[in-house]
């Protein structure tokens, strides 16, 4: 199934830009599968946090 495309509203300054992105991403999380948003989230998290399994 094709998932709904969401558009990011540009901000007039850094703070507004960041807040708009928070809203954009929250909407993405709300409207897409957990597997899809977590795959993208893990690209960020796992690039910075090592796998600490002993």
């Amino acid at each position: 199934m094709k998932e709904k495309r969401i558009f990011l509203k540009p901000g007039r300054n850094n703070r507004e830009e960041r807040m708009n992105f928070v809203e954009f991403w929250a909407e993405f999380v709300r409207t897409h599968s957990d597997k899809e948003w977590s795959r993208q989230q893990n690209n960020l998290i796992n690039s910075l946090i090592p796998d600490v399994e002993s």
């Binding site: 795959r39 989230q41 600490v52």
Partner: peptide, 11 residues
């Protein structure tokens, strides 16, 4: 939450 677990989640 049916997410793929991150390294942080596993920790």
């Amino acid at each position: 939450v049916c997410k793929e677990l991150s390294n942080l989640d596993r920790f």
